[in-house]
């Protein structure tokens, strides 16, 4: 369902979309059923067809059963939703798979600063490449990110990855993702951060190994020279 509205470009996009689908199906079922019964009653018991109302308190056991059964079924559906939501949450936010490379992301009013690691995939070497508003990644590599903010709250959001994480000044927040599709995508800031919030956009470029190697070599030359 979600895949047809917006591309899935990370390893966990499909998993999140599946949770959304489960909620849509179960929630949609109850919504249609409840609205259906409501509109049926409005039609069936309009004054013209039903000039005198029934008298019932709804306190007797038999009458309450009409409420309790659907209510118990709602609890069952809730359990299913909670199970799906929690297992996806665990995989995405609690469990950190080993990384092929680590990047640094810094939000500031009103730009994103990205540090690309050296060839060992680790930050802190002389090979680091820092650029503003453009992030280059290799497809099918697992990345850890270190997310920081230098002023106010920002939120690092890549809709095609189904990834969003607030950046908080004074903290370094670690997370992960694995791009699965080559191409150019939007990076947003999803937390209001002042006047420039609406223009705080960056570009994500996911490349294959060769293209990435070429790009980063050129970039290193450019920044050195």
């Amino acid at each position: 369902m979600m895949g047809s509205i917006i591309e899935q470009a990370s390893s966990y996009a499909a998993e999140i979309d599946q949770v959304i689908l489960v909620v849509a199906v179960l929630g949609g079922f109850w919504l249609l059923l409840t609205e259906g019964v409501l509109f049926y009653f409005l039609f069936r018991y309009r004054r013209k067809r039903s000039p005198r109302a029934k008298y019932m308190s709804g306190e007797s056991h038999g009458e309450k059963a009409w409420i309790h059964w659907p209510h118990n079924l709602v609890i069952v559906c809730d359990m299913v939703i909670i199970a799906f939501a929690m297992s996806a949450w665990y995989n995405i936010k609690q469990d950190l798979p080993p990384a092929d490379a680590t990047i640094r992301i810094v939000g500031q009013q009103w730009a994103w600063r990205f540090t690309h690691p050296g060839s060992a995939g680790e930050l802190g070497s002389s090979e680091d490449v820092e650029i503003v508003d453009e992030l280059h990644l290799q497809v099918n590599k697992t990345y850890h990110f270190k997310l920081e903010s230098s002023d106010v709250l920002h939120s690092f959001s890549v809709p095609v990855f189904r990834l969003k994480q607030d950046a908080i000044p004074g903290r370094i927040i670690t997370g992960w993702f694995k791009p699965t599709k080559e191409g150019a995508f939007d990076i947003q800031c999803a937390e209001i951060c002042g006047i420039g919030h609406g223009a705080m956009v960056a570009k994500l470029i996911v490349q294959n190994e060769d293209d990435y190697a070429q790009w980063i070599a050129a970039e290193r030359l450019r920044t050195k020279g």
Partner: peptide
């Protein structure tokens, strides 16, 4: 559910 049940058998 309770509100909808209130409409059941009413004269709306």
């Amino acid at each position: 559910f309770v509100y909808i049940a209130t409409l059941y058998g009413g004269s709306i």
